[in-house]
Design a protein around this nucleic acid. Structure first.
Length: 120
DNA sequence: CTCTTGACTGAGG
DNA sequence: GCCTCAGCCAAGA
């Protein structure tokens, strides 16, 4: 099992790979039943203007035990749901944790929002 | 190599 | 609050 490259981004710069890895590490710390935003993670990592890269990192988070369904945009909208297998999988995973979603919008967003910059 | 796209966000009107 | 624009930066055509 040597030489496994779970990262399909093996052509990226070392620093960028490091950034992706940090994103996964933070995402894994999101508590059950709570959510955070791409921007919150980016800000916590000191790259507040690279929130899009956080979303991109999520795109390659498959098979890494990363709760990608707990990461939404700043409005609490499930903008990444189309990247999950089922059309409704992301919402199902969230509701299974007690997070209510209506029309791709997380209800009572501020209550379930988890900010790594304040929690860590 | 250039150009477009995108799981984003903050600022300005 | 909504709409538009600029900045961010990797990947794909």
């Amino acid at each position: 099992m040597c030489h496994l490259r779970n990262n399909k981004h093996y052509h990226m710069k070392p620093e960028t790979l490091n950034f992706f890895d940090k994103v996964y590490k933070v995402a894994k710390l999101i508590p059950y039943g709570r959510v955070t935003s791409y921007g919150a993670i980016a800000k916590y990592l000191g790259a507040a203007r690279s929130s899009r890269m956080v979303g991109y990192a999520m795109n390659g988070s498959g098979g890494k035990d990363v709760p990608a369904h707990r990461v939404v945009n700043r409005k609490g909208l499930l903008t990444g749901k189309h990247h999950f297998d089922g059309t409704n999988l992301m919402q199902q995973l969230l509701e299974n944790e007690g997070v209510k979603v209506v029309e791709n919008q997380i209800q009572d967003f501020e209550s379930v929002f988890w900010d790594p910059s304040k929690a860590l």
